[in-house]
Design a protein around this nucleic acid. Sequence first.
DNA 1: TTGTATGCGTTATCAG
DNA 2: CTGATAACGCATACAA
Lengths: 337, 337
Amino acid sequence: MKNVTIYEIAEAAGVSASTVSRVINNKPGVKKATKKRVLECLEEHHFSPNETARGLVNQSSKMIGILISDMRTTHHTDGIYYIQREFSRLGYGCLIMNTGYDDADRAHYIQLMNQRRIEAAVLIGSTFQSDLVKDAIEQYLPKIPVIIANGYIDLPNVYGVIADERGGVERCVDLLRRKGYRYPAFAANRETPSNHLKMQGFCDGVRRCFPDREPLVLVTGSEQAEIEGAVNRLFEEHPQTDSVVFSEDPMAAICIRTLHDCGIDVPGQVGVIGINNSFIAEICNPSLTSLDNMLLDLSVAAARSLIDVLQGRHVVKKMMVYSRLVERESTQRDASE
Amino acid sequence: MKNVTIYEIAEAAGVSASTVSRVINNKPGVKKATKKRVLECLEEHHFSPNETARGLVNQSSKMIGILISDMRTTHHTDGIYYIQREFSRLGYGCLIMNTGYDDADRAHYIQLMNQRRIEAAVLIGSTFQSDLVKDAIEQYLPKIPVIIANGYIDLPNVYGVIADERGGVERCVDLLRRKGYRYPAFAANRETPSNHLKMQGFCDGVRRCFPDREPLVLVTGSEQAEIEGAVNRLFEEHPQTDSVVFSEDPMAAICIRTLHDCGIDVPGQVGVIGINNSFIAEICNPSLTSLDNMLLDLSVAAARSLIDVLQGRHVVKKMMVYSRLVERESTQRDASE
DNA sequence: TTGTATGCGTTATCAG
DNA sequence: CTGATAACGCATACAA
């Protein structure tokens, strides 16, 4: 019960395989009548062309590869979704792989992508900015366009669109000062290039807004218990702390919960800011002020660029999408105190 | 700068292409020495086999297809993640497509999957239980194993593992009664087979726990504003309502926010239950009692089944994963009132 | 142990 | 307008 081939169609229609091929691909130079006949046979036999064979002869897989560390990190799924939809529209399939955070594994996945002869690749996340990944791209994907969402690698075939994390977080500090907070801290879940930029932005802001202060920065881990623990420790060891910027909304949400359970008022006693402006920011109580780093716009830009490259248009190699600070209740207090 | 082929390797190593092929595939009958020489050339030329060509000759794409309505619905990404990882381990690539909710589109995507000659398919979500999808499977994927996560279609090559939504929601009603709530309502975001089962479970529960009561059920839409509106309307039109079960956690979270803004106490005046036991349930304030329908376990079971089928083992055609009710603060009141 | 020839399903290049 | 024929890159039966 294998799939029917153009030869069987050809036989059924009393023509040659080439004619069938021409009909399938809407090529000119086929008599109306025969075309109609072939079309009928195609329909009747439920023919659907073998893309594998097509890919072989056309030297084109009509597939793009999407690499992501872990697609369960929700703030990236919007991007994948968008990219998949756009490329689907153009007849491309999307091979999606979760690489994890180990660079050697990633190199392996990049090789796999090459074996599938993908025509372009999207790497999602700043953590793909590493030497091993760079080497792997040079070795396995040197000729196809590669775009990094929220990152950049300096190679001829690599494009990047990055978020304005540093500037965005710096503006978070501005906001905190405007609201009367005096002792801000910054907490990241893990060490990533992206989080590093956020830390830098935070330090920039603190040094500018509170020149006498040493920026207080911590790395917590991603588990709920770790974050709760870190928050508790933070307020024990630095009781003067009156505001925290978190590298991701969920962390901020957990912080709000934790403080609430300790009887600490947000935003009255402590101001909290998250990053990504995700759904969680809306449903927090108090709702969460969050830095929207425009991850979706970023993916949109990435997809557009990639499509442009594939269609031979000139494309900016590296660009930045500006972020936007969305104020909500978690920083809403008078600048009085 | 095309990719190097086995012929070029053959030439470089001074052997024939078939020998190279044998080495690559670790087939027996190659002299140690030549094998070593070939291996060196392979390494040196950065050879990586063209999976497209392999697929053509082997009649196997080494790809599975994953169809999902919208991967932004977070409670499904865990499943995709797991499935991708398991199949990756076996050397399979995952072609992932977001189909949307239109059945005709889905049929189209199923055809696309066939063109790529995927070796198995995973359909994620109860909404794939439709006649058009069934027809499409019969027509385009009649011979490869297809598994539906949280659904089932009666076809020889289709397997299904479903969640115990009906029983689970019925137990939610039990819990509410035990906690002293008397006027429960149920709200779903949209009409899906899965939500339908939940509604039925709710009705079962109400009829058993409160025989004199007519079950109160509403469909709200998925947007935040729609849900807020529905909640407000619910308590206007049915002021006696003292508890609500929502088809998804985020809806419940929004409800908690909305009630809080109206000065209605949860769980004191109103009990709230969500479904999926997602991250949101933990960070709600009050934290959210939620029915864990074991979506991850469900995906695990689905992946296992699919792998078993592919490896020729016998597999249960249809199975159910039991749900688990996780009590948190949003229903935590004494049964007094 | 190795090489030759053939085919996988399709498209493209020629002739006719 | 249509039909042979040769690729595409690899694997395999068969010969040597």
